[in-house]
Design a protein around this nucleic acid. Structure first.
Lengths: 159, 159
DNA sequence: CTCGGATTGTTGAGCTTTCAACCGCACCGT
DNA sequence: ACGGTGCGGTTGAAAGCTCAACAATCCGAG
Protein backbone atom coordinates (compact mmCIF):
# COMPACT_ATOMS: atom_id res chain seq x y z
CA UNK A 1 0.00 0.00 0.00
CA UNK A 2 2.61 2.44 -1.09
CA UNK A 3 0.28 4.32 -3.39
CA UNK A 4 -0.39 7.93 -2.64
CA UNK A 5 -4.05 8.84 -2.64
CA UNK A 6 -3.74 12.29 -4.18
CA UNK A 7 -6.39 14.92 -3.65
CA UNK A 8 -9.02 15.45 -6.30
CA UNK A 9 -9.55 18.88 -7.78
CA UNK A 10 -12.44 19.43 -5.45
CA UNK A 11 -10.58 18.18 -2.40
CA UNK A 12 -7.68 20.46 -3.20
CA UNK A 13 -10.04 23.40 -3.38
CA UNK A 14 -11.57 22.55 -0.02
CA UNK A 15 -8.18 21.97 1.53
CA UNK A 16 -6.89 25.30 0.27
CA UNK A 17 -9.94 27.12 1.55
CA UNK A 18 -9.66 25.42 4.92
CA UNK A 19 -5.97 26.12 5.40
CA UNK A 20 -6.45 29.71 4.30
CA UNK A 21 -9.20 30.10 6.86
CA UNK A 22 -7.18 28.66 9.71
CA UNK A 23 -4.19 30.82 8.88
CA UNK A 24 -6.33 33.88 8.37
CA UNK A 25 -8.28 33.46 11.58
CA UNK A 26 -5.31 32.76 13.79
CA UNK A 27 -3.47 35.70 12.33
CA UNK A 28 -6.48 37.93 12.80
CA UNK A 29 -7.01 36.95 16.43
CA UNK A 30 -3.33 37.09 17.20
CA UNK A 31 -3.00 40.56 15.76
CA UNK A 32 -6.09 41.79 17.55
CA UNK A 33 -4.81 40.60 20.92
CA UNK A 34 -1.31 41.84 20.30
CA UNK A 35 -2.56 45.24 19.23
CA UNK A 36 -5.21 45.78 21.89
CA UNK A 37 -3.78 43.84 24.81
CA UNK A 38 -0.08 43.37 24.14
CA UNK A 39 -0.18 39.60 24.32
CA UNK A 40 -0.02 36.86 21.74
CA UNK A 41 -2.89 34.44 21.53
CA UNK A 42 -0.92 31.63 23.13
CA UNK A 43 -0.40 33.71 26.23
CA UNK A 44 -4.06 34.55 26.33
CA UNK A 45 -4.78 30.84 26.33
CA UNK A 46 -2.46 30.33 29.25
CA UNK A 47 -4.14 33.08 31.25
CA UNK A 48 -7.55 31.61 30.47
CA UNK A 49 -6.52 28.15 31.58
CA UNK A 50 -5.12 29.51 34.83
CA UNK A 51 -8.15 31.69 35.49
CA UNK A 52 -10.43 28.67 35.25
CA UNK A 53 -8.31 26.49 37.50
CA UNK A 54 -9.04 26.18 41.24
CA UNK A 55 -6.97 28.78 43.06
CA UNK A 56 -5.99 30.12 39.65
CA UNK A 57 -3.14 27.66 39.91
CA UNK A 58 -1.95 24.79 37.73
CA UNK A 59 1.02 22.51 37.54
CA UNK A 60 3.22 23.32 34.59
CA UNK A 61 2.60 19.93 33.08
CA UNK A 62 -1.17 20.28 33.43
CA UNK A 63 -0.99 23.68 31.84
CA UNK A 64 1.05 22.29 28.98
CA UNK A 65 -1.14 19.25 28.58
CA UNK A 66 -4.41 21.16 28.77
CA UNK A 67 -3.54 22.70 25.45
CA UNK A 68 -1.19 21.01 23.06
CA UNK A 69 1.80 23.03 24.18
CA UNK A 70 5.24 21.57 24.67
CA UNK A 71 6.88 21.78 28.07
CA UNK A 72 9.65 23.89 26.69
CA UNK A 73 7.33 26.38 25.07
CA UNK A 74 5.32 26.72 28.22
CA UNK A 75 8.40 27.21 30.33
CA UNK A 76 9.57 30.05 28.13
CA UNK A 77 6.12 31.56 28.00
CA UNK A 78 5.62 31.46 31.76
CA UNK A 79 9.06 33.01 32.20
CA UNK A 80 7.92 35.87 30.03
CA UNK A 81 4.59 36.16 31.79
CA UNK A 82 6.46 36.31 35.06
CA UNK A 83 8.53 39.18 33.74
CA UNK A 84 5.43 41.25 33.10
CA UNK A 85 3.94 40.23 36.44
CA UNK A 86 0.92 38.30 35.21
CA UNK A 87 1.99 34.92 36.52
CA UNK A 88 4.04 33.76 39.48
CA UNK A 89 5.76 30.44 40.02
CA UNK A 90 5.53 28.41 43.18
CA UNK A 91 7.34 25.23 43.97
CA UNK A 92 5.22 22.17 44.63
CA UNK A 93 5.53 21.02 48.23
CA UNK A 94 4.71 17.35 47.63
CA UNK A 95 6.86 16.91 44.55
CA UNK A 96 9.97 18.99 44.56
CA UNK A 97 10.45 18.55 40.83
CA UNK A 98 7.17 20.22 40.10
CA UNK A 99 6.23 23.85 39.66
CA UNK A 100 2.95 25.65 40.00
CA UNK A 101 2.00 28.58 37.84
CA UNK A 102 -0.27 31.05 39.62
CA UNK A 103 -2.25 33.80 37.95
CA UNK A 104 -1.64 37.10 39.73
CA UNK A 105 -4.25 39.80 40.25
CA UNK A 106 -2.54 41.84 37.57
CA UNK A 107 -2.73 38.85 35.26
CA UNK A 108 -6.41 38.39 35.98
CA UNK A 109 -7.01 42.06 35.32
CA UNK A 110 -5.12 41.85 32.05
CA UNK A 111 -7.25 38.90 31.04
CA UNK A 112 -10.46 40.68 31.95
CA UNK A 113 -9.36 43.63 29.88
CA UNK A 114 -8.46 41.48 26.91
CA UNK A 115 -11.46 39.19 26.88
CA UNK A 116 -14.14 41.48 25.44
CA UNK A 117 -12.12 42.40 22.38
CA UNK A 118 -11.12 38.84 21.75
CA UNK A 119 -14.58 37.39 22.19
CA UNK A 120 -16.00 40.05 19.93
CA UNK A 121 -13.48 39.17 17.26
CA UNK A 122 -14.34 35.49 17.54
CA UNK A 123 -18.02 36.19 17.28
CA UNK A 124 -17.68 38.51 14.33
CA UNK A 125 -15.23 36.49 12.31
CA UNK A 126 -16.41 33.00 13.12
CA UNK A 127 -19.95 32.69 14.43
CA UNK A 128 -21.49 35.63 12.63
CA UNK A 129 -20.16 34.29 9.34
CA UNK A 130 -21.99 30.98 9.72
CA UNK A 131 -25.57 29.79 9.80
CA UNK A 132 -26.73 27.92 12.90
CA UNK A 133 -26.55 24.65 10.97
CA UNK A 134 -23.01 25.40 9.90
CA UNK A 135 -22.03 26.12 13.48
CA UNK A 136 -23.38 22.75 14.51
CA UNK A 137 -21.64 21.07 11.62
CA UNK A 138 -18.37 22.78 12.49
CA UNK A 139 -18.58 21.43 16.01
CA UNK A 140 -19.09 17.89 14.79
CA UNK A 141 -16.39 18.19 12.16
CA UNK A 142 -13.94 19.45 14.75
CA UNK A 143 -14.66 16.58 17.08
CA UNK A 144 -14.27 14.07 14.26
CA UNK A 145 -10.90 15.46 13.24
CA UNK A 146 -9.77 15.63 16.85
CA UNK A 147 -10.56 11.98 17.33
CA UNK A 148 -8.40 11.11 14.37
CA UNK A 149 -5.57 13.34 15.55
CA UNK A 150 -5.34 12.03 19.06
CA UNK A 151 -5.63 8.36 18.33
CA UNK A 152 -1.91 7.99 17.74
CA UNK A 153 1.19 10.02 17.26
CA UNK A 154 3.04 6.75 17.25
CA UNK A 155 3.04 5.70 13.63
CA UNK A 156 0.34 3.22 12.82
CA UNK A 157 -3.23 3.65 11.70
CA UNK A 158 -5.84 3.55 14.36
CA UNK A 159 -8.42 1.72 12.32
CA UNK B 1 -23.62 49.06 20.95
CA UNK B 2 -20.84 48.58 23.42
CA UNK B 3 -22.18 45.33 24.78
CA UNK B 4 -20.07 42.25 24.39
CA UNK B 5 -21.92 39.30 22.96
CA UNK B 6 -20.27 36.57 25.00
CA UNK B 7 -20.19 33.01 23.83
CA UNK B 8 -22.74 30.55 25.13
CA UNK B 9 -21.61 27.35 26.76
CA UNK B 10 -22.20 25.51 23.54
CA UNK B 11 -20.44 28.09 21.44
CA UNK B 12 -17.46 27.99 23.74
CA UNK B 13 -17.26 24.26 23.37
CA UNK B 14 -17.36 24.50 19.60
CA UNK B 15 -14.83 27.29 19.58
CA UNK B 16 -12.46 25.31 21.77
CA UNK B 17 -12.79 22.23 19.61
CA UNK B 18 -12.22 24.24 16.48
CA UNK B 19 -9.15 26.06 17.72
CA UNK B 20 -7.71 22.83 19.06
CA UNK B 21 -8.19 21.23 15.68
CA UNK B 22 -6.53 24.04 13.77
CA UNK B 23 -3.57 24.09 16.13
CA UNK B 24 -3.31 20.33 16.15
CA UNK B 25 -3.50 19.96 12.40
CA UNK B 26 -1.02 22.68 11.58
CA UNK B 27 1.40 21.33 14.13
CA UNK B 28 0.99 17.82 12.79
CA UNK B 29 1.58 18.82 9.18
CA UNK B 30 4.43 21.11 10.09
CA UNK B 31 6.18 18.40 12.05
CA UNK B 32 5.65 15.83 9.35
CA UNK B 33 7.21 18.07 6.72
CA UNK B 34 10.03 19.18 8.96
CA UNK B 35 10.85 15.62 9.91
CA UNK B 36 10.54 13.99 6.50
CA UNK B 37 11.54 16.81 4.20
CA UNK B 38 13.41 19.35 6.30
CA UNK B 39 11.10 22.23 5.52
CA UNK B 40 8.39 24.04 7.44
CA UNK B 41 4.93 24.10 5.99
CA UNK B 42 5.20 27.75 4.96
CA UNK B 43 8.18 26.93 2.78
CA UNK B 44 6.30 24.05 1.25
CA UNK B 45 3.54 26.46 0.33
CA UNK B 46 6.03 28.76 -1.35
CA UNK B 47 7.46 25.91 -3.40
CA UNK B 48 3.97 24.83 -4.41
CA UNK B 49 3.01 28.31 -5.53
CA UNK B 50 6.17 28.63 -7.59
CA UNK B 51 5.79 25.19 -9.11
CA UNK B 52 2.33 26.09 -10.38
CA UNK B 53 3.37 29.42 -11.84
CA UNK B 54 4.33 29.78 -15.51
CA UNK B 55 8.06 29.35 -15.81
CA UNK B 56 8.08 28.39 -12.14
CA UNK B 57 8.56 32.08 -11.55
CA UNK B 58 6.65 34.71 -9.60
CA UNK B 59 7.14 38.26 -8.51
CA UNK B 60 7.80 38.50 -4.79
CA UNK B 61 4.65 40.52 -4.30
CA UNK B 62 2.53 38.00 -6.18
CA UNK B 63 4.04 35.22 -4.15
CA UNK B 64 3.29 37.09 -0.95
CA UNK B 65 -0.19 38.02 -2.03
CA UNK B 66 -1.08 34.57 -3.29
CA UNK B 67 -1.03 33.40 0.29
CA UNK B 68 -1.54 35.79 3.14
CA UNK B 69 2.16 36.24 3.74
CA UNK B 70 3.75 39.56 4.54
CA UNK B 71 6.46 40.92 2.26
CA UNK B 72 8.96 40.74 5.07
CA UNK B 73 8.23 37.15 5.90
CA UNK B 74 8.51 36.14 2.29
CA UNK B 75 11.76 37.99 1.86
CA UNK B 76 13.30 36.17 4.80
CA UNK B 77 11.90 32.86 3.64
CA UNK B 78 13.17 33.23 0.09
CA UNK B 79 16.56 34.21 1.43
CA UNK B 80 16.63 30.96 3.31
CA UNK B 81 15.35 28.96 0.35
CA UNK B 82 18.10 30.52 -1.72
CA UNK B 83 20.66 29.37 0.82
CA UNK B 84 19.61 25.77 0.39
CA UNK B 85 19.44 26.17 -3.38
CA UNK B 86 15.73 25.60 -3.91
CA UNK B 87 14.92 29.08 -5.16
CA UNK B 88 16.86 31.70 -7.10
CA UNK B 89 16.19 35.40 -7.38
CA UNK B 90 16.18 37.33 -10.62
CA UNK B 91 15.75 41.04 -11.05
CA UNK B 92 12.76 42.19 -13.03
CA UNK B 93 13.85 43.88 -16.27
CA UNK B 94 10.80 46.15 -16.62
CA UNK B 95 10.63 47.29 -12.99
CA UNK B 96 13.98 47.58 -11.35
CA UNK B 97 12.43 47.58 -7.90
CA UNK B 98 10.94 44.18 -8.48
CA UNK B 99 12.31 40.71 -7.93
CA UNK B 100 11.40 37.38 -9.35
CA UNK B 101 11.62 34.18 -7.38
CA UNK B 102 12.40 31.17 -9.52
CA UNK B 103 12.07 27.57 -8.44
CA UNK B 104 15.27 25.66 -9.22
CA UNK B 105 15.41 22.07 -10.36
CA UNK B 106 16.64 21.12 -6.93
CA UNK B 107 13.66 22.94 -5.42
CA UNK B 108 11.26 21.15 -7.72
CA UNK B 109 12.85 17.84 -6.82
CA UNK B 110 12.55 18.64 -3.12
CA UNK B 111 8.89 19.47 -3.62
CA UNK B 112 8.27 16.25 -5.52
CA UNK B 113 9.92 14.32 -2.73
CA UNK B 114 7.91 16.08 -0.04
CA UNK B 115 4.49 15.99 -1.67
CA UNK B 116 3.51 12.34 -1.16
CA UNK B 117 4.09 12.40 2.57
CA UNK B 118 2.30 15.67 2.99
CA UNK B 119 -0.70 14.73 0.90
CA UNK B 120 -0.95 11.43 2.71
CA UNK B 121 -0.97 13.24 6.03
CA UNK B 122 -3.68 15.61 4.84
CA UNK B 123 -5.80 12.75 3.61
CA UNK B 124 -5.40 10.69 6.75
CA UNK B 125 -5.91 13.44 9.26
CA UNK B 126 -8.47 15.55 7.50
CA UNK B 127 -10.45 13.82 4.76
CA UNK B 128 -10.44 10.31 6.16
CA UNK B 129 -11.79 11.62 9.44
CA UNK B 130 -14.88 13.12 7.80
CA UNK B 131 -17.94 11.84 6.02
CA UNK B 132 -18.52 13.08 2.45
CA UNK B 133 -21.25 15.39 3.73
CA UNK B 134 -18.90 16.82 6.32
CA UNK B 135 -16.27 17.44 3.68
CA UNK B 136 -18.80 19.36 1.64
CA UNK B 137 -19.92 21.29 4.68
CA UNK B 138 -16.33 22.12 5.59
CA UNK B 139 -15.80 23.59 2.15
CA UNK B 140 -18.84 25.81 2.47
CA UNK B 141 -18.00 26.82 6.00
CA UNK B 142 -14.50 27.76 4.95
CA UNK B 143 -15.75 29.92 2.12
CA UNK B 144 -18.23 31.65 4.38
CA UNK B 145 -15.59 32.48 6.95
CA UNK B 146 -13.19 33.62 4.26
CA UNK B 147 -15.76 36.01 2.88
CA UNK B 148 -16.15 37.56 6.31
CA UNK B 149 -12.41 37.77 6.81
CA UNK B 150 -11.54 39.45 3.56
CA UNK B 151 -14.32 41.98 3.45
CA UNK B 152 -12.32 44.45 5.48
CA UNK B 153 -9.14 44.68 7.40
CA UNK B 154 -9.82 48.37 7.49
CA UNK B 155 -11.95 48.78 10.57
CA UNK B 156 -15.61 48.98 9.76
CA UNK B 157 -18.27 46.35 9.39
CA UNK B 158 -18.93 45.10 5.92
CA UNK B 159 -22.63 44.71 6.37
C1' DC C 1 11.67 68.16 -16.05
C1' DT C 2 11.16 67.86 -11.34
C1' DC C 3 9.34 67.04 -7.05
C1' DG C 4 6.45 64.34 -3.84
C1' DG C 5 4.17 60.40 -2.85
C1' DA C 6 3.35 55.62 -3.48
C1' DT C 7 5.12 50.92 -4.42
C1' DT C 8 8.57 47.01 -4.14
C1' DG C 9 11.47 44.72 -1.62
C1' DT C 10 15.12 44.29 1.99
C1' DT C 11 17.07 44.63 6.54
C1' DG C 12 17.83 44.25 11.61
C1' DA C 13 16.07 43.85 16.14
C1' DG C 14 13.02 41.62 19.21
C1' DC C 15 9.95 37.95 20.28
C1' DT C 16 8.14 33.20 20.11
C1' DT C 17 8.79 28.44 19.07
C1' DT C 18 11.44 24.24 18.48
C1' DC C 19 14.94 20.99 19.42
C1' DA C 20 18.25 18.74 22.08
C1' DA C 21 20.64 18.49 26.14
C1' DC C 22 20.49 18.75 30.77
C1' DC C 23 19.52 18.75 36.17
C1' DG C 24 17.11 17.35 40.06
C1' DC C 25 13.98 14.54 42.00
C1' DA C 26 10.69 10.52 42.42
C1' DC C 27 9.83 5.80 42.09
C1' DC C 28 10.96 0.95 42.04
C1' DG C 29 13.39 -3.25 42.53
C1' DT C 30 17.05 -5.38 45.00
C1' DA D 1 19.91 2.07 51.91
C1' DC D 2 21.34 1.90 46.83
C1' DG D 3 21.22 2.31 42.01
C1' DG D 4 18.79 2.67 37.80
C1' DT D 5 15.08 4.44 35.13
C1' DG D 6 12.10 7.88 34.00
C1' DC D 7 9.42 12.06 34.90
C1' DG D 8 9.02 17.34 35.46
C1' DG D 9 10.89 21.22 34.26
C1' DT D 10 14.51 24.39 32.62
C1' DT D 11 17.97 26.15 29.51
C1' DG D 12 20.50 27.79 25.26
C1' DA D 13 20.94 27.85 20.50
C1' DA D 14 18.90 28.00 16.07
C1' DA D 15 15.01 29.12 13.21
C1' DG D 16 10.88 31.66 11.83
C1' DC D 17 7.80 35.64 12.22
C1' DT D 18 6.64 40.55 13.11
C1' DC D 19 7.41 45.18 13.20
C1' DA D 20 9.41 49.39 11.97
C1' DA D 21 12.64 51.61 9.32
C1' DC D 22 14.85 51.98 5.14
C1' DA D 23 16.57 52.14 0.07
C1' DA D 24 15.44 52.11 -4.51
C1' DT D 25 12.38 52.85 -8.02
C1' DC D 26 8.20 54.19 -10.35
C1' DC D 27 4.50 57.34 -11.33
C1' DG D 28 1.83 61.42 -11.67
C1' DA D 29 0.98 66.43 -11.01
C1' DG D 30 2.50 70.79 -11.87
Amino acid sequence: MDEVRWLSEREQEIWRAFITVTEGLTEHFDRQLQRDSAMPYTYYEILVALSEAPGRTLRMSELAGARGSSRSRLSHAVARLEDVGWVRRRTCPTDKRGSFAVLTDAGFAALEAAAPGHVTAVREKLFDALTPEQVTALGEISKAILAGLNCQELSDPCD
